[in-house]
Design a protein around this nucleic acid. Structure first.
Lengths: 370, 370
DNA sequence: TTGTAAGCGTTATCAC
DNA sequence: GTGATAACGCTTACAA
């Protein structure tokens, strides 16, 4: 059957062409902003488009142009797990901010963001992670969504950015935050300002590059400054608040002398740690100081307000997308990007909590109240 | 040029066919799980697919099948705003959980989730929200992403689910949570258990259906029970913690007798309210009780742990996608779905906080206040 | 059981 | 300036 006339469904370019009395080529040209089109013709076409409510079919465009204008954001499946007992609070806020950043950047370039999880299992049939390649032009892979050795083959097919990883992959562009710098600043603050020598590091999942980077950087820095860092068994959690509560509980059960400060690998765990200490009748920072990493929104509203290292998660997402769009446009972006982190001093480290009137959103840099 | 042989790019079905010594039709059949294929043939095809690392092009599939297997999730643009001063904490957690739920459900049906914002402005050229229709098979529209009158035309084109709205649209399926039920339970608890008669409602953005529903339900319930509800100017915020801090500050400045409890339209604001009260030297729940709505993860770790109404955000997202997939499969799902909410009693309302050991993930001992 | 060929809705290359 | 028409990669009758 000759093209055109889809019975009664969505209007196609043929309908527009017919209505405007031109060929589909002309319609396409108008829609794609080609010049050299007679104004009168253009107006007729646009009118027809409006009347019909025509919207180009992205599949057809993708097929024809070889570009889908879609970037995939791949999360580890555990992040999306449906297990109600393991709330995976870890990802909360992180994923959200990351997605936002990616969204924003994608929008700027007329791209869209497609969410994917690494462990696709929908059809028992032949489900495979690789199926998703077909839907996107490029991929953002989060830390540990695929094993190192699988990155190569993937990166060979589509442009790939590795996020929050160890930063040592020559197979794909890597974008991450400066964990080391943040921990260095934190260690200096604790040791030099508060004169704390006995510290403890409450880590997240052991196999996470972020966790590893934060821990080794902190330990190195604090040791360098003449302090020590306790970090064996009891101090191991899973990035979650409840995991931290349990970890601190284990440590307290040992009834050994406590460290002066507990450095948590993320804010969620700091919240759990503070909670556990409070329940044990210990005061923060009076008896033990607690600091975190991330600077999630609630951090400033905890009591005491949480001292933490802010990481630019949103920018991380945006940078990833920008990098990929760059690649898709034929440019060669930087191979390894490191975004800066920033120490945010509030009350939980022992510093006098900002006296703030409590009106307005008090930002560490001295926020203005709108 | 005859089809086949894409110079050196991504392998197509033609490459697979050639390699396996069969026609592309056969390859397609194997890939789509058709029966009546000679086992030997099937094996050869699968082998070729494996060797070439072939992945079907989703655009081509979409064009051919008329289904893209992509569902769009549309957020109001303000949620993604790049304005660093307005942190929009409101959406945090909510969006995240919602997305998760949608993701999970989509995965189950081999669909993917595409993120979109309502105010697309990438190319000054001819950017339009409608452009996104081309990329998806169906849409989930969040509360207020488009004005009422625009829903009709959209729903006419693609299946649409309205989320967290007022629930009164016969143009599209609506899915929301039982705000009224939750508020009813909350009011009963406050009045009947704590004998609180003087309440205040700290609302979010005034034009939000959720805010309106929560407020009117609470006021009606508390009034019915013989209590009163203060809710004029000072008690208005923007869903954010900082907005709540400011609102409570305004109310305190009035130096009038305070209500016995502040009922917040969401947990973020409850956190801000508690913070503002603490800074004013008031104790929660000793001087004033505070309750929230949502039950975000940190709620149980606040001191005192926050009493709140839990809403099944993740299920909300999942239900939306399930409904759309249903429609796409030709079934006719329910027009208006209301998901149940649940009162979660913790310490901030004045109830004795659960005396947990603090090791589990449970709502624990009365964080000895400070 | 497998191959041939006609679409699917755009874009882009030629001619005119 | 504009109109035919050939791709783009895949699915699916229709034949064989």
């Amino acid at each position: 059957m000759s093209a055109g006339q889809t019975a009664e469904g969505v209007p196609t370019i043929y309908h527009v062409a017919q209505r405007a009395g031109v060929s589909i080529a002309t319609v396409s040209r108008v829609l794609n902003g080609h010049d050299q089109i007679r104004p009168a013709t253009e107006e007729r076409v646009l009118e027809a488009v409006r009347e019909l409510g025509f919207v180009p079919n992205a599949s057809a465009q993708g097929l024809s142009k070889g570009l889908k204008r879609i970037i995939g954001l791949v999360f580890a499946n555990s992040w999306w797990e449906d297990d109600p007992t393991s709330v995976e609070e870890n990802s909360l806020l992180f994923a959200d901010e990351l997605i936002r950043g990616a969204q924003l950047a994608a929008d700027r370039h007329a791209y869209s963001v497609l969410l994917l999880s690494s462990g696709v299992t929908h059809r028992a049939h032949h489900a495979a992670f690789s199926e998703v390649f077909g839907k996107v032009d490029a991929l953002v892979l989060l830390d540990r969504v695929v094993r190192q050795e699988r990155v190569g083959p993937i990166a060979k097919r589509v442009p790939v950015v590795l996020l929050a990883g160890s930063g040592r992959s020559r197979l794909a562009t890597t974008i991450r935050v400066d964990n080391a710098g943040g921990m260095q600043a934190l260690a200096e603050h604790l040791v030099l300002v508060h004169n704390m020598k006995r510290t403890a590091f409450l880590g997240g999942l052991a196999d996470s590059p972020d966790n590893e980077a934060r821990f080794s950087a902190f330990r190195a820095a604090v040791t360098e400054l003449g302090g020590s860092c306790e970090s064996d068994e009891p101090w191991s959690a899973d990035w979650t608040s409840s995991g931290a509560v349990a970890a601190v509980g284990r440590r307290l059960a040992l009834r050994r002398r406590l460290p002066e400060v507990i450095v948590c690998a993320n804010d969620q765990m700091a919240i759990g740690a503070m909670h556990a200490l409070a329940m044990a009748g210990l005061s923060v920072p009076g008896d033990v100081a607690v600091v975190g990493f991330d600077d999630i929104p609630v951090a400033r509203y905890l009591s005491p307000p949480l001292t933490t290292v802010r990481q630019p998660i949103r920018q991380l997402g945006a940078a990833a997308v920008e990098s990929l769009v760059m690649r898709l446009q034929g440019h060669e972006p930087a191979r390894d990007v490191v975004l800066p982190t920033e120490l945010v001093v509030r009350g939980s480290c022992g510093c006098p909590a900002t006296p703030g009137l409590g009106l307005g959103a008090e930002a560490p840099a001295g926020g203005k109240g709108r």
